[in-house]
Design a protein around this nucleic acid. Structure first.
Lengths: 189, 189
DNA sequence: CTAGGTTGCCTAAAGGGTTTAGGCAAGCGC
DNA sequence: GCGCTTGCCTAAACCCTTTAGGCAACCTAG
């Protein structure tokens, strides 16, 4: 009886691929077991349970996304950095819809604190250094940027914009322009 | 053998309550049947299947939300209308988290076209009449507002902001201010 | 190079959700 | 009051999750 050579890493990686193919919430231990031609129970030697798998996929996706964002930000500032950052998110979501969905999984606080999620927040703040914002406006702006990027991407993925006229690429560019203008001209309270 | 008096409407309403209590994606025909003290199979006389239930809950939530938004917009314009609209969404999401989640369910195109979703888009556009935006900028702005509101609410619900300093109410107000400023000063391409 | 222990994958089983088929009786329309 | 519709039922098949316990494959020590 040959061994399949399962490891948590291989399983999580395959789970991430599965998520992109069939959707993050269709990712199931059963489906994963089928992919490795192995019984479901065997996976429990490597993963605590189904939720553990999902969490690990989320952590993987957050890492990948943070790595891409860091690479894109290198050497850029201001509007340039903002646009590059925005595009990384959007491109990742289009390339890896399942993984992107995974990044939206609610993590418990200590897992979140140990995740690449904090790198995302740091990078967003780094972009804002190109603009002239003091606290607490900087924090408000961090939240605004996160909201716009996440909101736009998830509405776009849900087909919320699909019907009407201007294409979504143009809207995306114009929104980045608008955010740039807004950050350069942040209103006083 | 007394009849339970089930109807699609009662089931959907109870399903919506269930969603608020246990989360939209925990809403299950089994749980619903338990709530009515009825066998699961009995529900299939009133609902096509599990997905049908979820879709109807989504449609209900979209209606409720559109009704609230319409009431809030009556007699308001400009920043006032924008703030009222934003608050309706946020308050609804806090009051009815399960239903709010349901509004994010992906609907197939014809269902979406027949849903209250179109009222939401119309109202957003109505708000923009208080600002001086021609097409296609108006459409870009509609998309921006939808993205911000949805994105903010879902990040807030996911606990994405919970750790840090300025409270989320203040951020929310400041973001509305910022959007108002941006719309009054929409950058030329 | 083999004896031991460890660990990987297995079978078995229990529990819950979904869905379809077919049956009996409650209650409405005549 | 009679019949027919329709509401809720039992039964059964299928899928996903999780735990318990077993055998064999591999690693390591001697």
């Amino acid at each position: 009886m040959a061994r399949a050579g399962l490891t948590p890493e291989r399983l999580v990686r395959a789970g991430a691929e599965l998520a992109d193919e069939i959707g993050f919430d269709q990712v199931t231990l059963s489906a994963l077991a089928r992919r490795f031609d192995v019984r479901v129970a065997s996976l429990y030697s490597h993963l605590r349970n189904s939720q553990d798998l999902r969490t690990r996929i989320a952590l993987l996706a957050l890492e990948e996304l943070a790595d891409r964002a860091a690479a894109a930000l290198a050497g850029r500032a201001g509007r340039d950095a903002l646009a590059a950052f925005a595009d990384v998110y959007r491109d990742y979501a289009r390339e890896h819809p399942g993984r992107y969905d995974a990044t939206r999984l609610r993590l418990d606080p200590e897992t979140a604190a140990a995740s690449a999620g904090v790198r995302h927040a740091e990078m967003t703040r780094a972009i804002l250094r190109g603009y002239d914002l003091a606290e607490p406006d900087q924090t408000h702006a961090v939240r605004l940027l996160g909201s716009v990027f996440h909101g736009y991407i998830s509405l776009e993925a849900a087909g919320g914009f699909s019907h009407s006229a201007p294409d979504t690429q143009e809207t995306w560019t114009r929104i980045v322009d608008a955010l740039d203008a807004l950050l350069r001209n942040w209103p006083a309270p």
